[in-house]
């Protein structure tokens, strides 16, 4: 009986420690592997048009998914945290794809460059917003 109680306590302890490690250590330090993540390919113009025509339907297809987006850089900037941003143009001069690059992404990008970026689609404001992105050669 004593052995059973000790075994149950030990299992509980190991389970609790594992859960704590998973929730507060592993998940805190885990970095999403964007390089090897599967991605749906889409042109920046097609993506913007999809959101402008039907945001709900576009969200069902693209929201929080990893996308590989092709387009032309119309502007470069940075967030207030210093992360680099690119805007990919679309057929609508007032709307594009606003891409925030991962802080580790070091590739040089200039206005008018044709690029492919891979990142998470976060939805649509005045632009389609893409974050955690990397440049794909």
């Amino acid at each position: 009986m004593k052995k059973i109680i000790i075994s149950v306590l030990l299992l509980g302890l190991i389970g609790g420690a594992s859960a704590y490690y998973y929730a507060f250590v592993y998940m805190k330090n885990r970095k999403f592997d964007m390089v090897n993540a599967e991605a749906a390919s889409v042109d920046a113009s097609v993506l913007v048009k999809a959101y402008q025509e039907n945001e709900t339907s576009a969200n069902a297809s693209y929201l929080d998914k990893v996308l590989l987006i092709s387009g032309t850089v119309s502007a470069t900037d940075q967030t207030q945290m210093g992360e680099r941003t690119l805007t990919l143009s679309s057929e609508d001069p007032f709307s594009g794809v606003m891409v925030t690059l991962d802080s580790a992404e070091a590739a040089a990008v200039n206005v008018n460059d044709q690029v492919k970026v891979k990142g998470f689609c976060k939805g649509y404001l005045s632009d389609v917003v893409v974050t955690n992105a990397i440049i794909v050669k």
């Binding site: 998973y22 929730a23 998940m27 805190k28 999403f32 976060k122 939805g123």
Partner: peptide
């Protein structure tokens, strides 16, 4: 001011 909810970044992915 407009913001996308999925654009909020936490220190912990699970959170």
């Amino acid at each position: 001011f407009a913001v996308l909810i999925k654009g909020f970044k936490f220190e912990n992915q699970l959170m």
